[in-house]
Structures are given as structure tokens and as C-alpha cells.
């Protein structure tokens, strides 16, 4: 039976192939409508003026010109987004790897317990409200009171309304919540590193745990490191709810407004869909560039400069 099917002319699909294609439909169908179509339609709409009511009018590169030349807020918001990504991204990426690496050698029960401890903030979703209470602006709030009683400050600080502090605090909260999928992937990846490699390494002259990490552990889990990087890139570039909830939108002199917040303001509040699409396309491209830069950097893992 099987033989005969294989001998059929190539163009005709076998029943099995047809069934396999049908299996793709639920996922690929929704994937196309909610992931691909949004990307493609914003590429097209970025060349138009569109307010959701009248028919779109073609404006060529007008939206992009407005973005790079005229829009003052845009440059401010991109600056904040990149600054946030450049600090929070590597910090959370390294922390997610370092913590996973540190708990890797504990016996199973302790490892599971520590995994739970580090993963909980990411797991419980909206728990950043806790920070809102801890960092409230009045002197009843725990952090203000603590600092006043030890004489670090004399007046309560409006943490989220002060452009001097809000960025740093939000960065800390992001770090707190970032031990998510990538952290779990790292733990699992480390567990799978072949322990015989460590013994072989010791014979070959690996003497410190840093050498062991760089020459043995990290090269053995390169693909997990890339997955973990992709997850952290996705999360730092989409950070916006955190800022909007804690510091409001727009925040004081746009100090913590990210590109995503700005896009949703232009799009769903002001209905300038053409411009919002151009901004979205810009964001997609930035994320893609960062992803391939990191992919290139990860190829250096395990390389010796001597």
C-alpha cells in the first residue's frame, strides 16, 4: 500500500499530505490573520494617511519624513526605548543565565525551590502593583519612610513622577519580573550539559569556574542561549504597561514613555493610523536588527582570544 502511494506522480498529494496540510489550518490561519496580516498591513498603511473613517490617501514617505525630521516626541521616545532595552535587556539576560547557572548544581529539591523563588515574580503577572504601594509618593510609604528615618532624604519623593528616579525604579521592577521563560530554558539547558565534558575539560587544563563556563557550559547550550535572548528581546521592546500603570502616560517630560506606548497613543487615541503604522514598521525593524546582532555575538561564545 505504502509503496504504491510513493510511486504516484509527484504533483498529486497523498491522503497523508492532505491531512498534514489540514492540520496546519487552525494555527496558520489564525497566525496569518493576527500576526502576519498586521505586519503586512502596517507596511502598506505606513505610506498612507488614514483616520479609520475616510478612505486612506497616499502620502509616499510622508509618515517616515515626519517621524525622522519633524517629530520631537519620537526621538525622545526612541531614546528612552533604546536606553531601556540596552540596560534592561543585557542585565535581565545575564541575570537569567547567572542565576540558572548558580542553582544548577544544587540537589533537585533545593533547585526546584530556588527556581520557584526566582520565577514567582514573572509567574504572577500583575504583581508590580506591590511596587506601586512600596514606592508611593507620601511619607507613609515604606521606601520613603525608610530613607527618611535613616537620614538619606528629608522630604518624601514622588518616585514615579520624578524624572530623576522613575526610569531607574522601572528598570529595577522590569529586572524583578524578567526571570521568566528564558530563565526556565536556561535551567533546563544547563541540566542537559554532558557532565563528562567537565571532566574532560579538567584534564585539558580548565582551572577556574569561569573558564569552565566560557569554554564548556556556554558552547554546549548555544541554541538555548539564543532562544533565551529572543525571549528577553521580545520582553524589553514590548515593555509599556509597566510604565503606563506606574508613571502614567504621558509621563513627566516623556521620561519613561516607550515607543510602544507612543504608538498606541497615536493609533488608538488619535486615530492617526498611517503614522502609527510607520512607527510600528520602525519598531519591527529595530527588533529584527537587534535579534540578528545578538545572534552574531553569540557565535563568539567559547572562542578564545589568545
Amino acid at each position: 500500500m505504502q509503496r504504491r502511494i510513493e510511486k504516484l506522480p509527484r504533483k498529486k498529494l497523498t491522503n497523508e499530505e492532505v491531512e498534514f496540510y489540514l492540520f496546519l489550518i487552525p494555527f496558520i490561519g489564525t497566525f496569518f490573520v493576527f500576526n502576519i496580516l498586521p505586519v503586512v498591513s502596517s507596511m502598506v498603511l505606513s505610506f498612507f494617511d488614514f483616520d479609520m473613517l475616510s478612505t486612506p490617501t497616499f502620502v509616499g514617505f510622508g509618515n517616515y519624513l515626519r517621524m525622522f525630521v519633524k517629530d520631537q516626541v519620537f526621538s525622545k521616545v526612541v531614546g528612552t526605548t533604546l536606553k531601556f532595552a540596552v540596560i534592561a535587556g543585557p542585565a535581565s539576560y545575564i541575570l537569567a543565565f547567572l542565576l540558572a547557572w548558580m542553582i544548577n548544581e544544587f540537589p533537585r529539591a533545593i533547585r526546584v525551590f530556588l527556581t520557584f523563588i526566582f520565577y514567582v515574580p514573572a509567574l504572577v503577572g500583575n504583581a508590580y502593583y506591590i511596587w506601586q504601594i512600596m514606592f508611593s509618593g507620601d511619607s507613609y510609604a515604606y521606601v520613603n519612610n525608610f530613607l527618611i528615618s535613616f537620614g538619606f532624604i528629608t522630604e518624601p519623593i514622588q518616585w514615579f513622577q520624578d524624572s530623576q528616579y522613575n526610569f531607574t525604579i522601572i528598570l529595577i521592577i522590569q529586572l524583578w519580573m524578567s526571570m521568566g521563560t528564558s530563565f526556565l530554558a536556561n535551567i533546563a539547558g544547563l541540566q542537559n550539559v554532558n557532565t563528562e565534558l567537565y571532566e574532560a575539560g579538567a584534564i585539558d587544563g580548565v582551572r577556574t569556574r569561569w573558564h569552565e563556563l566560557w569554554y564548556i557550559t556556554m558552547p554546549s547550550m548555544k541554541s538555548i542561549l539564543l532562544f533565551s535572548a529572543v525571549m528577553q528581546i521580545q520582553s524589553v521592546f514590548s515593555a509599556s504597561t509597566l510604565m503606563q500603570t506606574l508613571a502614567g502616560y504621558p509621563s513627566v517630560s516623556n521620561s519613561v514613555d516607550t515607543l510602544v506606548s507612543y504608538i498606541s497613543d497615536i493609533g488608538t487615541v488619535r486615530y492617526e493610523m498611517g503614522y502609527a503604522s510607520a512607527l510600528s514598521v520602525f519598531l519591527f525593524i529595530i527588533i529584527l536588527i537587534v535579534r540578528y546582532l545578538i545572534g552574531g555575538l553569540l557565535n563568539l561564545v567559547g572562542k578564545s582570544d589568545r
Partner: peptide
């Protein structure tokens, strides 16, 4: 199947928040 899976891998980079406004157009 390979090209489709490759596209899925690229979309790992973009979540519902990044796609927010473009998705809003689709919802409408």
C-alpha cells in the same frame, strides 16, 4: 513547512503588545 516554521521563529520576537496597533486594525 520549513519556510512557515521559519516565519514562526521570526514571530517569536513580536508579542501582542508590539503588534498592538496593527492588530487593532484587524480587530476593527
Amino acid at each position: 513547512r520549513k519556510i512557515l516554521f521559519l516565519i514562526v521563529q521570526v514571530m517569536l520576537l513580536y508579542n501582542g503588545v508590539t503588534l498592538g496597533v496593527p492588530q487593532y486594525l484587524i480587530f476593527t
